[in-house]
């Protein structure tokens, strides 16, 4: 095992620990945790046995293992972007509902000349 493999494996190990901590603290669901643990195991396998990825790559019609990893990384990134976009949309929606609730609660009555929702 070369130095890069050792360092990368340590990083993957830390990320796996962080994933388990996130589950324990309720930051992530069981399903999300299971998905991420699978990703970290696959990364560890690819680091320790690089030839293994080449075997899988050839089995699916790709010449090199590194190409297979690149394609997988692109797909995972696309899914990540989509999930982030969906989460961002939900967050914006919640923000709008909150802003609306406050606006309606603090509506300035035309008969009340002093009311200002920013200060009242």
């Amino acid at each position: 095992m070369n130095l890069f493999q050792i360092v990368a494996l340590a990083v993957v190990g830390l990320l796996a620990i962080f994933t388990l901590v996130a589950l324990a603290r309720g930051w992530a669901t069981r399903r999300e945790t299971a998905l991420w643990i699978c990703v970290w195991i696959a990364a560890a396998v690819a680091l320790v046995w690089p030839n293994f990825t080449t075997k899988i790559a050839k089995a699916v019609g790709i010449d090199r293992g590194s190409n297979l990893l690149l394609y997988c990384a692109v797909v995972v990134m696309m899914i990540g972007f989509l999930m982030t976009y969906v989460r961002l949309r939900r967050l914006r929606r919640d923000m709008t509902l909150l802003v609306r609730h406050l606006a309606i609660r603090d509506a300035a009555d035309p008969t009340d000349t002093d009311a200002d929702p920013a200060t009242s």
């Binding site: 923000m95 709008t96 802003v99 609306r100 406050l102 606006a103 309606i104 603090d106 509506a107 300035a108 009555d109 035309p110 000349t113 200002d116 929702p117 920013a118």
Partner: peptide
């Protein structure tokens, strides 16, 4: 808007 006698609601941030 308030000077004109309308009901005025304010979004705290632009939505």
């Amino acid at each position: 808007a308030k000077r004109c006698g309308a009901f005025v609601l304010r979004h705290a941030i632009n939505r």
